[in-house]
C-alpha cells in the first residue's frame, strides 16, 4: 500500500472583521478566534500504481489533504503513512521518492532557462549524470519541449511552462506523484497533451498518481477511482463511473427533432433539462424508461434518439448538494 490515511483532520484558525475602520481599531485589541475544519476525519488507502482523482468544490479540503500527504502541513489529528513514512516528519528518504506539482506554484527560476533549474534538481535529488541525461531526454521528448530547454522560463507560454514544471518534478523518477490542478488555465490542446503524458507515464513507470482537478475531463481520462470530498468529509470513494449508480433512478434521453416542439409538449415525457428548436434533453425515471421512450418515438418528430446515464459531473454535483443539505439539516 502506498498511502494509508486514518482519521486525518486539519483545522485552521482565523478571525472575522466587520466592515470599517472602527472595527479595525477594535480588532487591534480583541480578535475572536474562529476555527475552520478544512479536513475532517478522512480515511482511505491507495495501492501502488493506482491513479486516483481527488474531486471536490473549492474549499472542500482537496489541496489541504494533498499538502498533508506530501508533508507540507502537519495535521491537527489522525495518522497517515505514505510510502511507509509519516509525511510530516519530512524524512529525506521519503522526499526522494515523491513529487508534487501545483498548477499555481512553480519551482523553476523565473529569470533562468529551465535547464539551469533542472540541473539544480539533479544535484538536489542526487541523480547521476547518465540517468539525468536519459530521463531528461525522455521527458522532454514526450512533452515535446526539447527545443525550449535553453529559453528563459518567463518567456515560455503557460502550457510550455507547465510542461517544464512537470519535467522538473519528475526528473528523479518519483514513485508517487501528487498533482494539484496541473492543467489549470491551460488551453484544451495542452490539457490533452498533459493527460496523455500522465497516462503513458503511469503505464511505463507504474507510478502512483493522486490528482486533483477542476476539469472533469482530466479525471475521467486518467482515473478509474475517485475520492470525492466536500466540506472536509469524504462523500464518495470508489469507481468514478459508480457515482452514477447513486443516481441510478434516472436516465437521460437526448433527442434530435425534425421540427420544433414546445417545452410544454416535451414536459409530458420527462423533466426538460435542455431545449432548443431541433434538440432536447430529457431526464426520465429509469423504471419508466421503456414506456416513455416508446411514447416519445410514437408522438414526437424524432430523427435521432440516445439514452445515456446522468453525466458523472452532474452526479458529483448532486453528491455535493446532498452533503450540503444534510449539513444544513444537522
Amino acid at each position: 500500500m502506498v498511502i494509508d490515511v486514518k482519521h486525518l483532520s486539519k483545522s485552521f484558525d482565523y478571525y472575522k472583521k466587520e466592515l470599517g475602520l472602527k472595527n479595525s481599531l477594535k480588532n487591534l485589541f480583541h480578535r475572536e478566534k474562529l476555527s475552520k475544519e478544512a479536513v475532517n476525519d478522512i480515511s482511505f488507502q491507495i495501492e501502488a500504481g493506482e491513479m486516483v482523482g481527488f474531486l471536490g468544490p473549492n474549499g472542500a479540503g482537496k489541496t489541504t489533504t494533498l499538502k498533508m500527504l506530501s508533508g507540507i502541513l502537519h495535521p491537527t489529528r489522525g495518522q497517515a503513512k505514505v510510502l511507509g513514512y509519516v509525511p510530516w516528519e519530512r524524512k529525506k528518504a521519503f522526499k526522494m521518492q515523491f513529487a508534487i506539482v501545483m498548477g499555481q506554484k512553480n519551482q523553476l527560476w523565473w529569470d533562468l532557462p529551465a535547464n539551469e533549474s533542472l540541473f539544480l534538481n539533479k544535484c538536489i535529488y542526487e541523480i547521476d549524470d547518465r540517468d539525468y541525461q536519459a530521463n531528461l531526454a525522455e521527458l522532454t521528448e514526450l512533452l515535446d519541449i526539447k527545443d525550449l530547454l535553453n529559453v528563459q522560463v518567463r518567456r515560455l507560454s503557460l502550457g510550455e511552462r507547465m510542461k517544464m514544471e512537470l519535467v522538473a518534478a519528475l526528473i528523479h523518477k518519483p514513485r508517487l506523484i501528487f498533482l494539484d490542478e496541473p492543467t489549470i488555465g491551460l488551453d484544451i490542446l495542452s490539457q490533452k497533451k498533459i493527460r496523455e503524458f500522465f497516462k503513458y507515464y503511469n503505464q511505463q513507470r507504474k507510478a502512483t498518481v493522486v490528482l486533483t482537478s477542476h476539469y472533469m475531463q482530466d479525471v475521467e481520462d486518467l482515473c478509474k477511482r475517485a475520492i470525492i470530498i466536500n466540506q472536509g468529509h469524504i462523500v464518495y470513494d470508489g469507481d468514478l463511473h459508480g457515482v452514477n449508480e447513486l443516481f441510478a433512478h434516472s436516465k437521460i434521453i437526448k433527442l434530435q427533432l425534425s421540427s420544433p416542439v414546445s417545452q410544454d409538449t416535451l414536459a409530458a415525457f420527462g423533466r426538460v433539462k435542455e431545449h432548443s428548436d431541433f434538440a432536447a434533453t430529457l431526464e426520465v425515471p429509469r423504471i419508466e424508461l421503456k414506456e416513455r421512450s416508446k411514447a416519445i418515438l410514437d408522438q414526437l418528430p424524432v430523427v435521432d434518439f440516445n439514452i445515456e446515464d446522468i453525466p458523472v459531473e452532474e452526479g458529483i454535483a448532486l453528491l455535493y448538494q446532498r452533503r450540503e443539505a444534510a449539513h444544513a439539516l444537522a
Binding site: 508533508g71 519530512r90 522526499k95 508534487i100 501545483m102 506554484k105 538536489i124
Partner: peptide, 11 residues
C-alpha cells in the same frame, strides 16, 4: 505559502 515546494525537497 511559497515554502510549499521547498518543503518537499530533500535538502
Amino acid at each position: 505559502g511559497d515554502l510549499d515546494l521547498l518543503l518537499t525537497k530533500p535538502v
